[in-house]
Measured scan of single mutants.
Amino acid sequence: KKSYVLIKVKNPKTKETHTIVVPEENLEEVLKALASQPNVKVVDIERFP
Rank of each mutant, 00 (worst) to 15 (best):
V5P: 00
S36M: 12
K1C: 15
V42F: 02
V43L: 08
Y4T: 03
T14F: 04
I20D: 00
N11M: 04
K32Q: 09
V43M: 07
K1S: 09
T17R: 05
K15T: 08
H18G: 05
S3Y: 12
K15P: 04
K10G: 04
L31M: 07
F48K: 05
Y4Q: 03
H18Q: 06
A33T: 08
L31A: 01
P23E: 14
L31G: 00
V9C: 07
V21G: 02
K1P: 14
K32C: 07
K2P: 15
L6P: 00
K1R: 08
N26D: 12
V22Q: 01
E28S: 09
K1L: 13
K13R: 10
V9M: 14
Y4E: 03
V9Q: 00
L27G: 01
L27R: 02
P23Q: 10
P23K: 11
R47G: 03
E16K: 13
S36F: 09
K8F: 10
E25Y: 05
E29L: 14
P38L: 07
E24L: 09
T17E: 09
R47I: 10
L34H: 01
Y4R: 02
Y4K: 03
E28C: 10
P23C: 07
P23S: 09
K10P: 00
K2N: 11
K15E: 14
L34N: 00
T14P: 01
V40C: 13
K13L: 14
R47D: 06
K8Y: 08
K15A: 11
F48P: 06
I7M: 01
N26P: 00
S3P: 12
V40N: 06
N26W: 11
V43H: 02
D44M: 10
V30N: 01
P49H: 08
E25A: 08
K13D: 12
K41R: 11
E24S: 07
E46H: 12
A33D: 07
V22I: 09
E46N: 07
F48I: 14
Y4G: 02
P12Q: 15
Q37M: 09
P12E: 15
V9S: 01
N39Y: 07
A35H: 11
V5N: 02
K41A: 10
T19N: 10
N39R: 03
K8W: 12
N39A: 06
P49F: 05
K2S: 12
N39V: 03
V42N: 01
V43F: 03
R47M: 08
H18T: 11
P38F: 04
Q37D: 14
Q37P: 02
K32M: 11
S36P: 02
P23G: 06
V5R: 02
E24T: 09
K15R: 04
K15Q: 14
S3G: 14
V9E: 00
T19W: 08
E46C: 15
S3E: 13
V5C: 07
K10M: 14
T14S: 08
N11T: 03
E29I: 10
L34G: 00
K32I: 07
E16Y: 05
E46Q: 13
K15V: 03
K13V: 14
E16P: 01
F48M: 12
N39W: 07
K32A: 09
I45K: 01
V9I: 06
V5T: 03
V43C: 06
R47K: 10
I20C: 07
V43D: 03
T14G: 03
I45Q: 02
L27N: 00
I7C: 01
E25N: 05
P12F: 15
R47V: 12
K15I: 03
K8Q: 05
T17H: 08
P49W: 04
T19H: 09
K10D: 06
N11E: 03
V9R: 00
D44Y: 14
F48V: 12
L27E: 02
V5F: 15
K2E: 12
K32S: 10
D44N: 11
K2T: 13
I45P: 01
E24N: 04
K15N: 14
H18M: 13
Q37C: 14
I45V: 08
Q37V: 09
V22F: 02
P23W: 15
P49M: 06
P38T: 09
K8S: 09
V22A: 04
I20E: 01
I45M: 06
Y4C: 11
E16C: 15
T19P: 02
S3A: 12
V42W: 02
E46A: 13
L27S: 02
K41G: 03
V21R: 06
L6G: 07
E16N: 04
L34E: 00
T14Q: 03
K41D: 13
P38D: 10
I20Y: 12
E16Q: 07
S3K: 11
E16R: 11
K2Q: 14
T14W: 03
Q37F: 07
T17W: 07
I45Y: 04
V21H: 04
K1T: 13
S36Q: 13
T14K: 05
S3T: 14
S36W: 05
H18D: 04
P38W: 02
A35Y: 14
R47P: 14
I7N: 00
K10V: 15
D44H: 13
V40S: 07
P49A: 09
K1I: 13
V30D: 00
E29N: 12
S36V: 07
K13G: 12
V5I: 07
V5G: 01
I45E: 01
S36G: 09
E24G: 04
I20G: 00
V42G: 01
T19E: 07
P12M: 15
N39Q: 05
L31S: 01
L34M: 05
P12G: 14
T17A: 04
E25H: 08
T14N: 06
V43N: 02
K8C: 04
P23I: 09
V40P: 01
E29H: 09
Q37W: 08
Y4N: 03
Y4I: 03
V9A: 02
N11P: 01
V42H: 01
E24H: 05
F48G: 05
P23N: 10
E28L: 09
I7K: 00
V30A: 10
Q37K: 12
I45G: 01
K10C: 15
F48W: 15
L6D: 01
E28A: 12
E24K: 05
P49I: 09
V30T: 14
E24C: 11
K41E: 14
D44P: 01
I20K: 02
V22N: 00
K1D: 13
F48Y: 13
T17I: 12
L34F: 06
E46F: 13
Y4P: 02
K15H: 12
T17D: 04
L34R: 00
P49N: 06
P49D: 13
I7S: 00
L31K: 02
P49R: 03
N11L: 04
L6M: 09
L6A: 13
A35D: 06
V9N: 00
E28V: 10
K1Q: 11
H18Y: 15
V5H: 03
Y4W: 12
I20M: 08
N11F: 05
I45T: 03
E46D: 08
A33E: 09
K1W: 15
V9D: 00
V43S: 03
T19F: 11
